[in-house]
């Protein structure tokens, strides 16, 4: 049996795009998000024997905390030229791009913890309790941070953007 063999590979292949998207929402930056996701998977790799039965929760928690605490390596990736796919999306003049860009920009205006709460609650679909577990804080903190985050998002984005959402 190879502990970090097929099952680790399967986990990475099955989760990497989704977690990279989460990381982009957390950081607002594609390159930084790739750094974070790589760092997260390296930690998963090291702890695989202990967490392989349920790696998702550990991965998500690690990712959220790396983003919030800004610990990351800048130089761990092989020194290869970035391919075109690493570039940020180019404005195409459509309303869809404007909406996406506006929301990503607005998210980056939030403090890291509030941003993490929004992403985990509304993108990753975690419950308040799961979000508290992932961020290592209390349920009350999640509730208050969510409320503050939505208030600030509401101010930043168009007035009707988050109307009625709590």
């Amino acid at each position: 049996m190879v502990t970090r063999g097929d099952d680790f590979d399967d986990f990475v292949r099955g989760s990497s795009t989704r977690l990279l998207r989460t990381a982009v929402l957390l950081t607002g930056d594609r390159a930084a998000a790739e750094d974070l996701v790589q760092e997260m998977y390296e930690r998963v790799y090291v702890r695989w024997r202990r967490i392989h039965s349920a790696p998702e929760a550990y991965a998500r928690k690690t990712l959220a905390n790396l983003a919030a605490n800004r610990w990351r390596s800048k130089g761990r990736k092989p020194e290869v030229a970035l391919a075109d796919r690493h570039d940020p999306a180019t404005p195409d003049g459509t309303e869809g791009y404007a909406v996406r860009d506006q929301l990503l920009t607005a998210l980056q205006e939030l403090p890291p913890r509030q941003r993490a709460v929004v992403v985990l609650r509304y993108y990753e679909d975690l419950t308040e309790a799961q979000t508290a577990e992932a961020l290592g804080c209390s349920l009350g903190t999640v509730k208050s941070q969510t409320s503050r985050a939505l208030d600030r998002l509401r101010l930043i984005t168009e007035p009707a953007f988050l109307e009625g959402l709590r």
Binding site: D9, L20, R21, Y45, R85, G96, R100
Partner: peptide, 24 residues
């Protein structure tokens, strides 16, 4: 809306290799 903001993003094909290398 959050999903639409990132739905064109795909993980790079060498991410698994890099994760393995760094983990090792």
């Amino acid at each position: 809306r959050l999903s639409a903001s990132v739905d064109d993003i795909e993980a790079p094909s060498d991410l698994l290799d890099r994760a393995r290398l760094g983990g090792a």
